[in-house]
Amino acid sequence: MPVPSLTALQQRLLDRFQHRLPLSPTPYADMAKRLDVDEAQLIDALDDLQNKHIISRIGPVFKPHRIGTSTLAALSVPSQDLAATAAFISTLPEVNHNYAREHLFNLWFVLTATDEAHLRAVIATIETTTGLPVMSLPMLREFHIDLGFQLNHMR
């Protein structure tokens, strides 16, 4: 997969606005003003990033467990069933990340729910539907890392 190239404007957008979007009724106009470009140009640049799936959205990242609860869950799925099981897991609105990984536990996903009872119910549904035990690994502690990839350092 080739690395998509970014325009200078797109690079500046990613450098400046991964953490804090201007909180006004017209955020794109405000961003455009700060970067000294037209709002239409800026919206085009963001639209292009979305179409290329470089960015997933412009919006919030929630602090885990501040509202609701979540867990990292894993299944050990027979390889011939992996695609179908993964497809089922992805349909659940409580699932955000869902990855196949190289391990005996080969399907990993994050479940987010508004409370523990809801989380247990989702796990029970998955176990009933797949016939497989869910290994649930709730987070006990998060160690802070300055999120938002540091593009300049990692290149």
Binding site: L14, Q18, G59, K63, I67, L147, G148, F149
Partner: peptide, 23 residues
């Protein structure tokens, strides 16, 4: 939204990237 950020419900509010597409 500012209040949700200030009270720690939102950790950050901005452009969220798909890291796999950036190399």
């Amino acid at each position: 939204i500012a209040n949700l950020h200030h009270t720690g419900i939102i950790k950050r509010f901005g452009i969220v990237i798909h890291h796999r597409r950036l190399g």
